[in-house]
C-alpha cells in the first residue's frame, strides 16, 4: 500500500502546487493593469484626496506580498474583498450566484453522466451497430456546434415553438426546487448536449480498448458468459478510465456554463464574470476566475487520484 499512498500524495502535492501558482497568476493580474488603478477607475479629474481614499479602501499602499497573502487568506474563507466598480463586498455579489452555477452544472451532470456511461458502454459492446454509428455522427455535431447554437435551437423549438419551457432562466433565492428544475431545464439540456457526446465517445473508446486486450479474449476462451466477461473482467479495469472521463467532463461543464448562463440570462457566476470583464472590474474577475479555476483544478486532481486508486497494479504492489 505504501507505493500507492506515495503516488497519491505526490499527485496531491502537485495539484496543490498548481493551485497555488494559479492564485499567484490571478492575483498578479491586478498588478499588470496599465497605469495606476486608482486614476484608471476614478478618472483623470479625480482629486488627490479621493485617490488616496481609494487606495486606502483597496489596500493599495501595502507591499505586494502582504496584499497577496491577505487576499489569499480572505479568498480561502470566502472573503474576496470589494468590487472596484460598485465598491460592494464581492462575496455578497457572487455568493448566491456561485451556488446557482454549481446547481446548474450539477443538474446537467446528473442528466448527462448516467446517459453517457450507459450508452457509451452499449456502443462499445455493439461496436459497428446502427446505434454505434449514430453515436459517432452525433459526436461530430457536438464538437462542431457552438454552445449558443445548440441553446438557440432548443429555445426556438421548446420555448418559442411549443412553449413548454421558458427561454429565460430567471431564478432567485425563493424559487422552489421543483420550479428551479423546470426553469433551468433548457440550460441544463444545452450543457448536457454539449458534454454528452464527448463523454459517450470517451467511454466507448475506453471500453473498446479494454475489450481488445488479451485477457478479455482469454476470458472468452475460458467459456465465460458474455455478460460475466463484461461485468467481472472488463468493468473493474474500465473503472479508472471511466472515472477519468466523468471528472474531466465535469471540469468542462463548470466552464461551459459561462456561455449558457449568458444565453439564458441565468443569474450565475459566469454571467457575473462576463459583466465584470466588460466593466474591467478586476477584483470581481479575480474572484470569479479563482472559483472557476480552483474547481477545475480540483476536479482534475480528483480524476487523477481516483484513477490511480483504481489501478490494480498500483493497488497491489509487488
Amino acid at each position: 500500500m505504501n507505493s500507492i499512498l506515495s503516488i497519491v500524495f505526490k499527485r496531491l502535492l502537485i495539484g496543490l502546487l498548481t493551485l497555488w501558482i494559479v492564485t499567484v497568476i490571478i492575483f498578479a493580474a491586478i498588478e499588470m493593469l496599465p497605469g495606476d488603478i486608482a486614476t484608471e477607475m476614478l478618472g483623470q479629474a479625480a482629486t488627490e484626496e479621493s485617490l488616496a481614499a481609494f487606495r486606502e479602501k483597496f489596500d493599495l499602499n501595502r507591499p505586494l506580498h502582504e496584499r497577496y497573502f491577505s487576499w489569499l487568506a480572505g479568498a480561502a474563507t470566502g472573503d474576496f474583498g470589494i468590487s472596484l466598480a460598485n465598491q460592494r463586498p464581492i462575496s455578497e455579489l457572487i455568493g448566491q450566484r456561485t451556488a446557482n452555477t454549481f446547481f446548474l452544472a450539477g443538474y446537467a451532470a446528473a442528466i448527462s453522466v448516467p446517459i453517457a456511461v450507459v450508452s457509451g458502454m452499449m456502443a462499445a459492446l455493439y461496436n459497428g451497430s446502427v446505434f454505434d454509428r449514430l453515436l459517432s455522427n452525433s459526436t461530430l455535431a457536438a464538437i462542431s456546434f457552438p454552445e449558443f447554437f445548440i441553446a438557440y435551437i432548443l429555445i426556438l423549438i421548446f420555448s418559442v415553438g411549443f412553449g413548454w419551457f421558458p427561454s429565460l432562466a430567471n431564478v432567485d433565492v425563493d424559487t422552489s426546487l421543483g420550479e428551479r428544475l423546470y426553469i433551468t431545464f433548457l440550460p441544463a439540456m444545452t450543457l448536457t448536449l454539449i458534454v454528452l457526446a464527448y463523454m459517450m465517445r470517451m467511454t466507448r473508446a475506453a471500453i473498446l480498448n479494454l475489450l481488445a486486450l488479451p485477457y478479455i479474449e482469454m476470458a472468452h476462451l475460458k467459456g465465460i458468459k458474455r455478460w460475466r466477461v463484461i461485468a467481472v473482467h472488463a468493468l473493474p479495469n474500465a473503472l479508472a478510465p471511466i472515472i477519468n472521463v466523468i471528472a474531466l467532463n465535469l471540469a468542462y461543464l463548470i466552464v461551459g456554463v459561462v456561455l449558457v448562463e449568458v444565453v439564458f440570462v441565468y443569474p450565475g457566476l459566469g454571467q457575473t464574470l462576463v459583466d465584470a470583464v466588460s466593466k474591467r472590474d478586476v477584483t470581481v474577475v479575480q474572484a470569479a476566475c479563482l472559483i472557476f479555476a480552483a474547481t477545475y483544478i480540483l476536479l482534475n486532481l480528483l480524476a487523477d487520484i481516483l484513477s490511480i486508486i483504481a489501478n490494480p497494479r498500483l493497488l497491489h504492489p509487488r
Binding site: 493580474a29 471540469a251 466552464v255 464574470l273 474591467r280 479575480q286 482534475n300
Partner: peptide, 21 residues
C-alpha cells in the same frame, strides 16, 4: 505548459482580456 493548462482557457482568456482590453 502544465500550469497554463491547469486554468480553463476561457477563464484565463477572460482574466487577461480584462487587463489588455
Amino acid at each position: 505548459v502544465d500550469v497554463l493548462m491547469a486554468i480553463p482557457p476561457l477563464i484565463f482568456a477572460l482574466l487577461i482580456l480584462t487587463i489588455t482590453g
